[in-house]
Every structure is written in C-alpha cells, then in structure tokens.
Amino acid sequence: MRKGLSWFNTTSIALGFAFLYIPIILLVIYSFNASRLVTVWAGFSFHWYVQLFHNQQLLDAAWVTLRVAFLTATIATVLGTMAAITLTRYGRFIGRTLFSGMVYAPLVMPEVITGLSLLLLFVAIGLDRGFWTITLAHITFTMCFVSVVVQSRLVTFDRSLEEAALDLGCTPFRTFFVITLPIILPAVVSGWMLAFTLSLDDLVIASFTTGPGATTLPMRIYSQVRLGVTPEINAACTILIAIVTVVVIIASIMTKRQEMERQKAERLAAAG
C-alpha cells in the first residue's frame, strides 16, 4: 500500500469535516436571519447584532469573561511552564509521582467534581466568591493543559544548547531566558492561547465558583439557551467564533513563517 489518498480516505475525511463544520456554519447563517424564529428563514439582516450591542447584561458578562480569561491565561502560563520544566528537567525527586498525578488528573477530571471541590474550599476558608474565585479556579485547571503543551516541546529540544550555556558559566536563570524560552516560545504562546480559550469557554467550574456580581458570558448564554434558541445568541456565538478563527489563523500563519525562516537558516548554514 502506498502513501496517498484512496477513495475511502477522501470520503471519510470529507464526511468527517462536514460533520464538524455544518452545525457551526448553520449557526452562523441563522444569526443573519431577520425572523425571530431561528429555524424559519426570513431574509438577511443585521438586526440581531444591533440588538446584541444594546444588551447591557451580555456586554457586562463578556467584559468579566475577558478579564478572567486574560488573567487566567497569563498566570496559568507561568505556572504551567514551571511545572513542565520540573517534570522534564528535574529527574527524580521526592513527591514526583504525586506532582505528575496532580498535573495530569485535571485534564480528564469531570468538571462537576473540580467545580464542587473548589467551591467547598473557598467556602471553608471563607473567601468571598466572585471574580477572583473564578480566576483562581480557572488558573488551577488550565495550568495543567499549558504544562502538557510546553512539556511536549521541552522533550523534543536539544539539551546540549542548555548544557553549553551552563558550562560557559551562564546562570540557570539566565540560561532559561536566553536559551530555553526563545526555543519553547511557540509552545508557551499556544499554551497561553489554550488557557485563554478554555477559560473563555468554561461554564461548569465558573458556575460553581462564582458569587453575586460575577456572571461570565457562558453562564449568561447558558441561562438564555435554557429558555430557548434565539437569533441574538446565534449572533453572540458568531462573534465569538469569528474572533477565535481570526486568532487561530494568525497564530498558525506566524508559526508557519517562523518554521520557514528556521528552515532557510538551516539551509544557509548547511550551504556555507
């Protein structure tokens, strides 16, 4: 059997992508529907988008969500990168099994358990629930995702570069910022983005750990969805999808360009 796509391969890819994308495309199309009924097409209109920008509750929720996500992603990236370095560079240490368990378990832990346990912790220590408790909860579960992304980069990279710097008298601290960080930066950036979208997206953990005054966008959308499907929610979703798509495409173009430059540099080095 040779490399290349058979009839079966092409069909399964095509059907798979149709399954993945048709629901999202339909959702976007119906956000431009003039009718109040989501499933009856009554002409093209921006009505729901205009409506959306007059919905103060939704805008407030969006603002809270963005602030939580930004703080979460930034702190989780620092903590997750530290955890990744520990797990890939420190060899054996006491309590390693426990640590690696705590890093991987949140990846699959059902959200209801994480949410409930964090809420009970916040109540037990008497922390006022709201913006900060959501942020703490989000940092905790997203840092594990960051750690896995960064680890996969750390394992594949050439450690002799780090060792050379250390041999030449560079401090470990400086070695990290001068050698290691620039090399793993793409992974750190994608870790940040992953943490950002996970936080942006989370409904269950935020619902458990929130308090009065801090309602996130998924919580607001969820409570409206329970009352029924409305084109306004379609419009809100479309805006979110558009933002994410643009960010992901820019990021992938950037990594591609970086990769090409690296290859060019390698070719030049080989030629000269």
């Binding site: 999202i24 339909l26 979208t197 997206d201 499907v229 979110l240």
Partner: peptide, 29 residues
C-alpha cells in the same frame, strides 16, 4: 487538515452543543 480538526475545539463547547438544538428540534433544520 490538523488545523481544521483543532479549530472547532477552539470555539466554545457551549456554542457547539447549542448549534445542535437548532438542528435536532422537532421544527429544526
């Protein structure tokens, strides 16, 4: 292809579930 698989994952979980309500409901698409 890899990016096309990952892209829906970046869009909200809630949105993706919500999209199916409009498709599967009795008067749905």
């Amino acid at each position: 292809l890899l990016m096309l698989v990952i892209l829906p994952f970046w869009t909200s979980f809630l949105i993706r579930v919500y999209a199916w309500i409009g498709i599967l409901s009795p008067e749905g698409l």
